[in-house]
């Protein structure tokens, strides 16, 4: 008994120091994957049935809606492309480095509940699909969270509302930077470090600033819902609602940042005249 308890405590201790037990975690996650798959099966089946047994009119209606949405989106994209070019030009003028873009891969959430006090989810992509620790999850609306544990065929990710998670954000309207911290409520992020004098209003959009080196910059994170200013307190009480579909999304996007290309090497000034037999470099 004592030995087992000691094992438990040692396990917890080493697990808390991330990275020591990755192999055990990977093995265990493969072991329990069938259980998760069984729980997920009815939901997967329902999704499949919905796709395959839909009536013709429903499909046509959906198709029309999607086409309309696509048209609206592509018009927006045209403007975006122009803006992006302009932005790149301006950045060049200011001699700032180009922003690093990335590409995304679709992943699916398994319909399983984990600990109700942690906001973690299981996705159906693992080390086989080149998922890596700390990888960012997005959805159609904004940032969802990050991968915290990678298994061979599945991975575990923490939502931004998990109490252990914090994300560097900036208020889109003013550029003011602050931290948004998970509250264990799926509809709420807390912004505890905004001083009383901060310019923040209800409805302000928070976007990721990218300064944490983890989340890509300029993705929407949350919308400010509550600003409570108490002159007696040094900080405001500010709450925000995540824009991503955290509690009923089933598809997420895994963000793969492109490797930051090294700045183009400056062509060496070739002013030195080469004399035969001597190297000029």
């Amino acid at each position: 008994m004592l030995l087992l308890i000691a094992t438990c405590i040692a396990l917890m201790f080493y697990d808390h120091q991330r990275g020591h037990l990755e192999k055990i975690h990977a093995a265990l996650s493969t072991l329990v994957y069938p259980v998760q798959a069984v729980v997920n099966a009815p939901y997967a089946l329902a999704g499949w049935a919905q796709e395959n047994l839909a009536t013709h009119t429903a499909l046509v209606n959906e198709n029309t809606g999607l086409k309309r949405q696509l048209r609206i989106d592509s018009v927006q994209l045209q403007r975006f492309a122009a803006l992006e070019q302009e932005n790149a030009r301006l950045r060049k003028l200011m001699q700032a480095g180009a922003k690093v873009a990335g590409h995304v891969v679709l992943a699916r959430l398994l319909a399983v509940d984990m600990d109700s006090f942690r906001h973690t989810v299981i996705i159906n992509k693992g080390a086989h699909d080149k998922v890596h620790d700390g990888q960012v999850l997005l959805d159609a609306h904004g940032i969802v969270g990050q991968v915290i544990r990678v298994g061979p065929v599945s991975s575990e990710a923490a939502l931004i509302t998990d109490p252990s998670q914090a994300i560097q954000v900036q208020i889109n309207r003013t550029g003011l930077r602050t931290l948004a911290i998970g509250t264990a409520d799926v509809n709420m992020l807390s912004l505890p470090y905004l001083p009383n004098s901060a310019d923040v209003k209800r409805g302000d959009l928070l976007v990721s600033s990218g300064l944490d080196g983890r989340y890509p910059p300029d993705y929407p994170v949350a919308v400010v819902t509550v600003v409570h200013r108490d002159p007696a307190q040094p900080f405001d009480t500010v709450m925000a609602r995540p824009v991503a579909d955290l509690d009923h999304g089933h598809d997420v996007l895994l963000y793969f940042p492109h490797k930051a290309s090294p700045p183009p090497a400056k062509p060496e000034p070739r002013t030195v005249k080469r004399t035969p037999g001597k190297k000029s470099r």
């Binding site: 008994m1 087992l4 308890i5 094992t7 438990c8 405590i9 040692a10 396990l11 917890m12 697990d15 808390h16 037990l21 055990i24 975690h25 265990l28 996650s29 072991l31 329990v32 259980v35 998760q36 399983v112 984990m114 600990d115 942690r118 973690t120 299981i122 544990r149 575990e156």
Partner: peptide, 28 residues
């Protein structure tokens, strides 16, 4: 206790908690 320990570790993996957390509680 050994069976319980095994089940506890499986439960830790399933719920995404610290490895050994549910195992310890179940063991007690």
């Amino acid at each position: 206790l050994l069976v319980t320990f095994g089940v506890g570790v499986l439960m830790d993996t399933l719920t995404g908690s610290l490895l050994g957390e549910h195992a310890l509680a179940l063991l007690l």
